[in-house]
Nucleic acid binder design. Structure first.
Lengths: 155, 155
DNA sequence: TGAATCTCCGACAGTTTTGGTCGTATACTA
DNA sequence: TAGTATACGACCAAAACTGTCGGAGATTCA
């Protein structure tokens, strides 16, 4: 459990793919879908949502497609997941107007909310650039890369 | 998304409740369910699973019920969630024998696996004791309490 | 102009996961 | 032996997730 949806996975994969091809002006949903063997129409819908939230820029017509709207370093995994799967709450009772229906019940939520923020923080600290396919040896040596990064968080 | 199930929530609530009543030898599923207004039979099933994984000790018969098998400080939120919801994978493709079906597709999984470990680490660092209802003022001053804890993790 | 390519968008069906119930068997106490 | 409580499996309903279909609008190129 506590896993993210396939849609979010696909979204991350697509953005990663775009980050790896900065030279091309735009890639169609089908191009990316074919590269990973995922359903093209489904990916299209995901990319559309990412466009609506401003992470991608779309261009209709021939030779159209999608491109990152910012540098890959400036797009966090958190933004992608949030765009696709919606707000990220670890507590199952989404704190609406009044919190839980059962008034005094969710005394757990308070501490878990901090966990939630921590996880969000971790996700925010990872950019699409970090996911992109640089070869592992290089990734290991690079200071800014994953694998060397130290996260310090107050819980 | 990325939220834990109600069952896991219920489980945490129940353990928290037990941690808050260390004087009583055992509490029945119904007692706890009533306290929080959650379905008794469902909670019973959850507690049974927690018993099977060794987090609780059960006692049938009159004045029976459930009790923590260890000190609340020794039970992590991670154990509870893992017992109820199963293995905790952020990647939607549960890495079975060969990983994804789409062979080269999940180059994302590798970095995300680290995120996964980080989250697990955070969850492991929180005990049922931390969730238990000590009054907020005290909790704020206590050194061992949540709110003051520093988590340092390599990503 | 018109054809081809591609994004855009809503609706909808199939499947899986969750949440919750029911019934019964079993264990323990008084 | 009556009453209370766990143990366990089958079952059902509701929700979420995944994926598909069909059509409308934009853009480019011939």
């Amino acid at each position: 459990m506590l896993k993210l949806t396939k849609k979010a996975d696909y979204g991350l994969m697509a953005l990663k793919y775009l980050a790896e091809h900065p030279e091309t002006p735009a890639l169609s949903a089908k191009d990316i879908a074919d590269a990973y063997g995922i359903p093209a129409q489904l990916l299209a819908k995901i990319l559309q949502r990412l466009t609506k939230t401003g992470l991608l820029r779309s261009h209709a017509g021939m030779n159209g497609g999608y491109a990152l709207s910012r540098d890959a370093r400036e797009i966090s995994a958190f933004e992608v997941i949030h765009s696709i799967d919606g707000p990220l709450f670890i507590t199952s009772c989404t704190k609406g107007a009044k919190g839980c229906d059962l008034t005094p019940s969710c005394t757990i939520k308070e501490p878990l909310a901090r966990v939630n923020e921590t996880i969000a923080g971790v996700l925010k600290s990872i950019s699409i650039y970090d996911l992109a396919d640089r070869d592992p040896a290089k990734a290991a040596e690079a200071g800014s890369s994953i694998g060397q990064r130290l996260v310090t968080l107050t819980l």
